[in-house]
Amino acid sequence: MPDQLLYAIEVTLNGLMAGVLYSLVALGFVLIFKASGIFNYAQGVMALFSAMTLVGIMDGQVPFSHLINAIFGTDIHHFGWHVPAIVAILLTAVVMTAFAWAVNQVIFKHLVNQEPIILFMATIGLAYFLEGFGDLMWGSDIKSLDVGLPQGGSFWIEENTAWLGGEGFYGFFIDQLDMVATVVAVILVAVLVAFSQYTKQGRALRAVADDHQAALSVGISLSYIWVLVWSIAGFVALVAGIMWGTKSGVQFSLSLIALKALPVLMLGGFTSIPGAIVGGLIVGVGEKLFEFLVGPMIGGATENWFAYVLALIFLVFRPQGLFGERIIERV
């Protein structure tokens, strides 16, 4: 096979896996939008906050230590223990559940039946609050995150695919972290689908998503469902935060990964879990192949804008996204 074709395949494979990482972020948006009609602007910051909390718990960092030290003149930073990754992940999930409860109690409980734009504005406020709160709680320095996930290209794949091409082909490069992310995303989606199809809470969640007034009339607690769905979105944000945080360290920029999820949502639809996955894959492959084939001719750095162009093209022909529910309003 010609080397150039092999490299195009390599770019496609890497695009697919980058797409999975985008999907992980998009999933959180979809879950909340589907259940409550809220476009959660704070989803990216939730990924950041959950990853900061995870690192803080793992390293035994004292929360709000800078504030405590400034007020009381103390010099405490660490508890002096290290928590195993799996325990820290579970504790972080608990924190994200508490966060979901607090968000519902303090904000959304009071905004039921408000216009979507009001709810959206509330999430903008929430995002900025959470950014500052996270900084105050855990500090704004860059934190290394190591939960034991492998990183770097797979030697095995490289060595066993090098024979496919000529001297200019070095075997396929596949990042081990991307492979792990793909497996985790598949498991996550399977669990989410099973949860929504086969559990009482899942059915209640779907009922609220379909028609929350009808759901209320049969005794489903809207408040409970919103806490549940924000908790799940918080857990999805944690998974996304772990994957992205392992790549770049946990830092403020993690909140900007939400920008990567927007074209995925435009493409896949705001209400479909499979849409988030397929949308992510299309965006991932599309932007990487465009950069590979066209980028060098026009100066490169095409990925950020091309993802949006791709999403806009889909939007023109299918405004609800590939898998979104068609909006039909009858007079």
Binding site: L256, K260, G295
Partner: peptide, 13 residues
């Protein structure tokens, strides 16, 4: 690499 630079797979490939 476009701002912020969180995703650089294409450049490094």
């Amino acid at each position: 690499v476009d701002h912020p630079g969180q995703e650089q797979k294409s450049q490094w490939l």
